[in-house]
């Protein structure tokens, strides 16, 4: 194996039977007919057919596996280029500098703290996150990373969030999956919100209907 290449695992040790069994637990049905609907709009006839189509994705982490394994163990693993010393989190398994010729980076453990660079207070999001609304999406520079990572910042009163505030990392105690959803950010305990400002009042007011809407949403599910 060439030292400057990522290793390619040999599949002779891969247990296909086990993998197939696991997949069978989540059956894929392919094209499944659901509905036919028709109508007239103005003087134009229309017809539409609804078809359910599902798929089970397998995300293979490959060279990123140590990062995912780290998350399972409650660790944040970033990368460091042995040539230029750049640290990045999220990790990059080859250095991003053209001068480093795609040097394979080294895994390093990141501290569970960082500085919030920017954020937004979400009043709407994808389906999987609706019940969490309104939540804060934050871009955080963890440790000495030269890149910011996006994740949720948990805070009771989101209008108090501010740029450059110190944050800490919290891992879920529930079953971890090896994805960044295993952790989130919280304000560093040493940080205290500054007094209310007109902008904070404005954000608070914008959040009010979101809280109401989520109450209704939670009741209906």
């Amino acid at each position: 194996m060439e030292k400057n290449l990522h290793p390619t695992p040999n599949n002779k040790d891969f247990i296909w039977e086990k993998w197939i069994k696991l997949n069978e637990k989540i059956p894929e049905k392919g094209w499944t007919w659901q509905n036919v609907r028709s109508g007239i709009a103005g003087n134009v006839e229309w017809i539409e057919q609804q078809i359910y189509y599902d798929m089970l994705y397998t995300f293979r982490l490959g060279a990123l596996s140590p990062y995912a394994k780290g998350l399972l163990e409650g660790k944040l693993l970033g990368t460091k280029c042995p040539k230029c010393g750049d640290i990045t989190f999220p990790p990059r398994v080859n250095c991003w500098r053209l001068d480093c010729n795609l040097e394979i980076t080294e895994w390093i453990e990141m501290p569970h703290s960082g500085i919030l660079h920017t954020f937004t207070i979400c009043g709407f999001a994808a389906k999987s996150a609706l019940k969490k609304l309104p939540f804060v999406l934050a871009y955080v520079l963890v440790g000495k990373s030269k890149t910011a990572i996006a994740n949720i910042l948990k805070i009771a009163e989101p209008w108090h969030v501010e740029s450059d505030m110190p944050v800490i990392v919290k891992f879920t105690e529930k079953k971890r999956v090896g994805n960044l959803i295993d952790f989130w950010f919280e304000p560093d305990p040493s940080w205290h919100p500054s007094p209310m400002t007109p902008e904070k009042e404005r954000i608070k007011k914008l959040c009010e209907p979101v809280y109401e809407w989520i109450k209704i949403l939670k009741r209906s599910i």
Binding site: T120, S128, A129, A138, A150, N179, L180
Partner: peptide, 27 residues
């Protein structure tokens, strides 16, 4: 649309492009 963002990271948060853009706008 959000799966045009890195699905191993951002997309899994349940955020979508509006949320990312809002973060950029903030800066």
């Amino acid at each position: 649309i959000a799966i045009a963002s890195d699905t191993r990271y951002e997309a899994m948060l349940g955020a979508n492009y509006t949320n990312y853009y809002a973060g950029l706008a903030r800066v």
